[in-house]
Design a protein around this nucleic acid. Structure first.
Lengths: 238, 238
DNA sequence: CGAAGTGTTGAAGCAAATCAATTTTCGTGG
DNA sequence: CCACGAAAATTGATTTGCTTCAACACTTCG
């Protein structure tokens, strides 16, 4: 049942046939355990495998000239974040774990074989990479808004993404990120993330403790974050 | 020779075979002329055609709650910016012309036929959409830097992209954008774009007049913009 | 030739960064 | 189980790059 997260994820954004589900369910490869801040691939490398996330949280990031880390996306179980390395061979960014994380690595050759034999799976995965791009676009927009909206937006997005892979319970989901990590993703200092979290708590929109996010007011949080889930292209809404 | 820009663009990022070049060169569809600020597709729509840009400059953008326009990407001749609508059917953003622009529209069915018959073309175009995503990632990072670096970065990117499609001459290329349009793409006010342009001119890095950008100091501009062209994944460097 | 869009300049205000402690939490070994 | 050190969270004070507001000048073109 290793690949359950992948199927959950793909069924959230598309409608694979039984055969396709079977092929994807049988995806296998070396399992790899990563510790927080351990990298999976770095700028300049040319990976020969793609990762399937099973557990944990990973991110893509770049390091600026002044040493600041910019997180460009978060990746959750079920994601295949480096599918792009099949066609864009050289990493233009880093990819690493933020918390203890488990992935399986599938050789490029094997993936390519599947794409050729099952064009519909290729299209499914193409769709997945396009939704990835849609998330980037939303982040470009979202990161131009005030801190309050940015943090709210991030929580809305992560909650929905956790929900479709079955990791939420009611209005709670795991969110074991530090304020520094959130800041690097939101383009905010950790200090300001902290102050903003306090605002969101004071407004009774969220609770965040012990690595668990609880949304107290979904509508209110959506409004605060100017959040519209359309860009996630999920088949069903929350 | 309508599709020349497309071939130029694809040859800048990949190596199509003669047959593939021929198929792509024969791509045809209705020609459409667009005036500045005329939209090609809007949020919520489900286009049934994809555009191939022949001339001009288009952009993807969203309008925020407060009415601000956020430009998420620019598109130049040779780009097929809404290839994504083949697999992600509903537009989550707007797509429109910024200056007088010519496109041809190719029906989805026709494109799908080509993708099925020529898997290598599918992979080529997939690569194209992945590079699009790489540009989004870079923009997320770039937009967190000071205004001076952002403007410099934009000019470096646009110059290289113009160059690979044959629209540059020496270190000059067309750049008929207003300061407001640049501001919407950079997350800066038009006022601040103006002041920043003056700095770049004062530093003898660029000239920008009459819709033409001239780079006076490529190295200096790269440094100012913390620009590294890796993310564009061009086969040859500048 | 006048109107609209674009570019330019100046002054004031503000959201968030930065700098600098201090407190709390948490993992780990004694 | 507690003590310890390191990481994370929190608080306060100061600084700053950019926005906003407000004019005004220039260009372009019907």
């Amino acid at each position: 049942m290793q690949t359950t997260p992948l199927l959950r994820r793909l069924q959230a954004i598309a409608t694979p046939t039984d055969e396709e589900r079977e092929v994807l369910a049988s995806l296998s490869g070396a399992t790899r355990q990563l510790r927080p801040n351990e990298d999976i691939a770095r700028v300049g490398e040319q990976p020969s495998v793609v990762c399937l996330m099973l557990e944990g949280i990973a991110c893509r990031y770049k390091i600026s000239a002044d040493g600041k880390r910019q997180i460009m996306s978060f990746h959750l179980p079920g994601d295949m974040p480096d599918l792009n390395t099949l066609f864009v061979h050289t990493m233009d960014h880093n990819f690493g774990a933020l918390v203890p994380t488990t992935v399986i690595t599938v050789p490029h050759d094997k993936m390519r074989g599947i794409l050729v034999r099952y064009p519909r799976i290729a299209h499914l995965l193409w769709r997945e990479t396009l939704i990835d791009a849609a998330v980037y676009r939303e982040w470009i927009v979202m990161r131009d808004r005030p801190a309050y909206a940015r943090v709210a937006h991030l929580f809305c997005e992560l909650f929905l993404r956790m929900q479709v892979i079955g990791l939420s319970k009611d209005l709670s989901c795991p969110l074991p990120l530090t304020q520094l990590q959130m800041g690097d993703a939101l383009g905010l200092s950790d200090v300001h993330v902290n102050r903003t979290l306090q605002e969101l708590r004071a407004e009774q929109l969220i609770r965040l403790e012990g690595g668990t996010l609880t949304i107290l007011d979904w509508e209110g949080l959506n409004y605060a974050g100017e959040f519209d889930s359309l860009y996630l292209h999920l088949k069903r809404a929350a």
